[in-house]
């Protein structure tokens, strides 16, 4: 593995997020929607908790992750710049990893202003800091899964709209799985529950950090990036 190559791709992609309106629109719109839900519930419920942040973010991510990611690879395919990358001494997985880390970093930037809510609420009442840390850790991991899957979606096609829809579909399926479990026989349900992203998230959001959940997240991320790499390699050695 060549870390330097990953770093160069990462820097370039992150810079191009912030050179274009993408980063600012994502951050502003996410904060606006989340802020509305957060503030409107906080005083009605009168409970000092960040639950709104942790419940709303995965839902918003369903749309934000495919939108943030859709141009990452498909645009390179469409404009032909993939030919430039492929003829440089850099491996496919370094390209994929660099791009994934860049969009994940953008997600960090998007999430970080919500720490203001933490400060506000902790002044107004007592917060369960453990649950907050767990919640944020969970959000970062859920986000990573959604983004990794969307990177794969973007690698599939040179059309950004198709990339968006395909990514949305996969991410939505992963998200919805544990909501439809009670329609299914137990034997299948157990398996599907494990695949479901929400099941693992609710564990972490309670403040319980279980290795099984962590393994789930990292293996899903790894698998999605592996698939994206494979798609790119196929393109070359077709």
């Amino acid at each position: 593995m060549n870390i330097t190559n990953i770093k160069y791709i990462f820097q370039k992609e992150l810079r191009s997020f912030f050179n274009s309106p993408v980063a600012y629109i994502v951050i502003v719109v996410y904060l606006a929607i989340l802020g509305w839900f957060f503030v409107s519930n906080l005083f009605i419920n009168n409970i000092s908790t960040l639950r709104t942040v942790f419940e709303m973010t995965p839902f918003l991510l369903l749309f934000f992750a495919p939108a943030m990611t859709m141009r990452l690879i498909s645009e390179e395919k469409k404009s032909g710049t993939l030919e430039l990358l492929f003829t440089k001494p850099i491996k496919e997985y370094e390209i994929v990893t660099g791009k994934f880390l860049a969009v994940w970093a953008l997600y960090f930037f998007t999430l970080s202003p919500t720490l203001c809510y933490y400060l506000t609420v902790s002044i107004l009442g007592t917060l369960d800091t453990g649950a907050v840390i767990g919640g944020y850790l969970g959000l970062l991991l859920v986000g990573a899964v959604f983004l990794a899957v969307s990177v794969f979606g973007s690698a599939l096609t040179e059309n950004q709209v198709v990339a968006f829809i395909v990514s949305l579909f996969i991410v939505f399926t992963l998200f919805i799985l544990d909501k439809i479990l009670f329609y299914l026989p137990t034997s299948i349900a157990v398996v599907l529950e494990y695949v479901s992203i929400d099941y693992h998230f609710s564990n972490i959001a309670r403040g319980v950090i279980d290795t099984r959940d962590i393994i789930y997240y990292f293996s899903t991320i790894g698998f999605a990036l592996f698939l994206a790499t494979n798609v790119l390699q196929k393109r070359r050695w077709a």
Binding site: T4, N5, Y8, K12, R15, S16, N19, S20, S79, G80, T81, E83, L84, L85, T87, K88, P89, I90
Partner: peptide, 24 residues
């Protein structure tokens, strides 16, 4: 390459630097 694909949102120096980095 034939169609000379380039990253249109980068400036000339950024692009040359990026290429130099990737070319080790």
């Amino acid at each position: 390459p034939e169609q000379n694909p380039l990253y249109l949102d980068m400036n000339v120096l950024e692009y040359l630097q990026y290429t130099a980095q990737l070319q080790n």
